[in-house]
Write a protein that binds this DNA or RNA. Sequence first.
RNA 1: UCCUCAGUAGCUCAGCUGGUUAGAGCACAUGACUGUUAAUCAUGGGGUCCCUGGUUCGAGCCCAGGCUGGGGAGCCA
Length: 462
Amino acid sequence: MKHQSVKQLLSTSPSNQNVCVKGWVRTRRGNKNVVFIAVNDGSTIHNIQVVADPNAFDENLIKRIQTGCSVSIQGKLVPSQGSGQPVEVQANEIHIYGEADPETYPLQKKGHSLEFLREIAHLRPRTNTFGAVFRIRHAMAFAIHQYFNDRGFYYLHTPIITGSDAEGAGAMFRVTTLDASAPPKKEDGTIDYDQDFFGRETNLTVSGQLEGELGALALGLIYTFGPTFRAENSNTARHLAEFWMIEPEMAFYELADNMDLVEDMLKYLVRYALDNCKDDLEFLNKMYDNELLQRLQSVVDHQFVRLPYTEAVEILKSSGQKFEYKVEWGTDLQSEHERYLVEKHFQKPVILFDYPKHIKAFYMKQNDDGKTVRAMDVLFPGIGEIVGGSQREEDYEKLLNRVKEMGIHEQSLWWYLETRKFGTVPHAGFGLGFERLILFITGMANIRDVIPFPRTPLNAEF
RNA sequence: UCCUCAGUAGCUCAGCUGGUUAGAGCACAUGACUGUUAAUCAUGGGGUCCCUGGUUCGAGCCCAGGCUGGGGAGCCA
């Protein structure tokens, strides 16, 4: 008999029809006359309740049905006599695929700390919390593609392995097939990458942006959505060595268009979660963060603040707030400053723009004041920077000067620079950290709890 | 990488001023219970007190070094 998902069964009207459910047992309880088995298959946060008459089954079989074991159960779908669920399955046949010895199975029917669950990343998807988070993660990935597709953007696959070391977005992981213990050397003693797989030094990408720009300058509107790697020794609840990033890039967009797009997109995604992930969000709201739903709704309901960096500095200086780090025009804002603006002063998302040029990347469009560039960062409550973006410098001479000023090897960027030589146009784009988005949507506090298998310094076990 | 806190039963934690045989709740096992909702009640088993070294008559507790984890900071998305 073909089985149905728990999600399907829970929304089916019961009429004693025969059904089959397959999944993992969450709890078993009962007495001599009746046994209740809560089964979950990951299709929804809710379990389906299976009711069995212990006298109709082998006593040993009932005993073996324990938390974590996998089962296939056939029975009748009936209205539930209890109050906790609309329907239940009256079991006729119970088959156990695999037992889970309660003495050694780490997930028991009790609360476990998120720290403990990180140590058993192979099993934590079976918990309510991680089931909810990963279902939401899926929904957000899907919604991102939907959002862009509906608006005429093309999904561009930019390379994971890159030969460009000039992106300036952080330390990189080397990709090589050379023998690490005895690499070939040149006469001067340095490693001879001519003999490596690509005949040059290569790394895992820290951003698809530069290639994304090449796509936008042909297809008009593109986005990337792929893995990104940073070899920084970052040990925080907001950083991963391997994470996923969404990077739209738009020809003929200026900074204001960029800000319009990012605000519209983030609101679309939050609304999508509220509309499509209700059960999972309600669970997270109840168990982890009582203000989650309210905070999500508030992002949808309010306009983001748009504030030039220079005005932000003035607000911070005249705030009367004591900061550990002094606020000074020309320095990058510290976490405490960003948090003050977002969580205290405005109490809603803030887009900061027009940053001092010397604290930003070489490719950002220079303003006429000679001091600032058309950069923007989107700051979210509790997360900090969730998006970083800018209008790009489309003037060949200005871009080249900036490359030289910042000591970047211009030869390795010849292809990027050529786009400004041939048919250059104003364009803009941004990078959205996917896991930071999921942090915000789920209310989770640690980025390691919103990606199935987190990669952080000293952690690549699973 | 820096600052800071922590590491005791499968999990979450308590353990007083350094003193005999290290405790609790949950989980687990056994039993009871006619419909439960992380069922309830009773009974029971369960310990490399993170590791190494030191101080002391005596260390879970004090000291040094290390390992691991949390929180904060930096780098950023």
